[in-house]
C-alpha cells in the first residue's frame, strides 16, 4: 500500500509541475487537477512494483532531497565543467592513455550506486563500464591513466576523484 501512495504522490507532483500555468486556480484549473489525480492513480496502479522496489523510503526525507539538490548545483556542476574542459583538451590534442580500473566505493543502496555511476560518467576522464552486484565494485574506464596507477589491483577513490570526494558526498545523501 505504501509504494502505491508514494508513487501516486510522485506522479501527481510531476503532473502539477508539467501543467503549471494552465489555469486560474493559483496556476492550475480544476479540470486539470482532476485529470491529474485520475492519471496518477492509473500510473501508480501500473508501476507501483518498480518505483520503490526495495521498500526503502529514506529518499523521501526532505533533508536528503535538499542535500541532493545542493550536490547537483555545487560540486557536481563544477566537476562537470572541469570534465568538459579536459575532454576538449583531449579531443584537440589527441593525447590519451585509456584503460579500465577498479574502484571500491562501498555503497550499498541502489539509489546511491546509480547516482555515483551517473556522477562518474559525467565527471573528468571517467566512465562507468560495469558494476559488480555482489561487492559493489565499479569498473571505471579512464581516458588518461596517470603513470603508476595501472599497477594497483584496486584503485583508491582518491586517485580517481581529485577535487571533490563523490563517494563521501553520496554516502551522506543516500545512506
Amino acid at each position: 500500500m505504501i509504494p502505491f501512495i508514494v508513487t501516486t504522490l510522485f506522479a501527481f507532483l510531476l503532473y502539477l509541475v508539467l501543467t503549471a500555468g494552465a489555469g486560474d486556480l493559483v496556476w492550475w484549473s480544476y479540470s486539470e487537477i482532476a485529470a491529474g489525480i485520475v492519471l496518477s492513480l492509473i500510473t501508480a496502479a501500473l508501476s507501483r512494483t518498480f518505483f520503490c522496489r526495495n521498500r526503502d523510503y529514506r529518499m523521501a526525507n526532505p533533508v536528503r532531497l535538499i542535500l541532493l539538490l545542493f550536490y547537483i548545483v555545487c560540486p557536481f556542476f563544477i566537476e562537470m565543467a572541469k570534465a568538459n574542459l579536459e575532454v576538449a583538451y583531449r579531443v584537440i590534442t589527441g593525447r590519451i592513455r585509456p584503460g579500465i580500473v577498479r574502484i571500491s566505493p562501498g555503497l550499498k543502496t541502489d539509489f546511491g550506486v546509480a547516482l555515483l555511476a551517473n556522477s562518474i560518467t559525467l565527471t573528468p576522464g571517467t566512465l562507468t563500464v560495469s558494476v559488480d552486484d555482489d561487492t559493489g565494485d565499479f569498473y571505471v574506464h579512464m581516458i588518461n591513466i596517470r603513470k603508476g596507477l595501472e599497477t594497483k589491483k584496486i584503485t583508491e577513490s582518491e586517485d580517481v576523484f581529485t577535487l571533490f570526494q563523490f563517494p563521501a558526498w553520496i554516502r551522506r545523501i543516500a545512506e
Binding site: A83, N84, V87, R90, I96, P98, T121, L127, H141, I143
Partner: peptide, 15 residues
C-alpha cells in the same frame, strides 16, 4: 575506440 568516443559524446553534448 568506442569507449573513448563515449567519453567525448556523453560529457560534451550533455554540457
Amino acid at each position: 575506440d568506442v569507449y573513448t568516443r563515449l567519453h567525448a559524446e556523453t560529457k560534451t553534448t550533455t554540457f
